[in-house]
C-alpha cells in the first residue's frame, strides 16, 4: 500500500478516535464538576476554574490531532 493511500485512511480515523476520546474525557470532567458543584455550591467558583482549565486541556488534544492531520495532508498525493 502506498503511503498516500495509507494516510488517506489513517488521518480521518485518527481524528475520529481523538474526538471520541476527547468527548469521553470532557463528559467525565463536566459530570464530576457538576456533582461537586451540587454537593458544594459555595465552592462553585473554584470548581469552575478547574473545570475550565481541564476542558481546555482536553480540547487541546483534539486540536493537536487536527493540526497533525493538516501537517500530514500534504503527503497525500
Amino acid at each position: 500500500m502506498e503511503i498516500g493511500t495509507a494516510l488517506s485512511f489513517a488521518l480521518p480515523l485518527g481524528v475520529g478516535i481523538a474526538a471520541v476520546g476527547s468527548g469521553l474525557g470532557l463528559g467525565r470532567a463536566v459530570s464530576a464538576a457538576m456533582e461537586a458543584m451540587g454537593r458544594q455550591p459555595e465552592a462553585a467558583g473554584k470548581i469552575q476554574v478547574g473545570m475550565i482549565i481541564g476542558c481546555a486541556l482536553i480540547e487541546a488534544l483534539t486540536i493537536y490531532a487536527l493540526v497533525t492531520v493538516f501537517l500530514l495532508m500534504g503527503k497525500i498525493a
Binding site: 458543584m37 462553585a44 469552575q48 473545570m51 475550565i52 481546555a56
Partner: peptide
C-alpha cells in the same frame, strides 16, 4: 479567544443559582 469563549460559556451555563 478559545479560552475566553470556553470560560464565558462555562460561567453562563454552570453557575449555581
Amino acid at each position: 479567544a478559545n479560552f475566553y469563549f470556553l470560560t464565558e460559556l462555562v460561567v453562563a451555563v454552570f453557575t449555581p443559582y
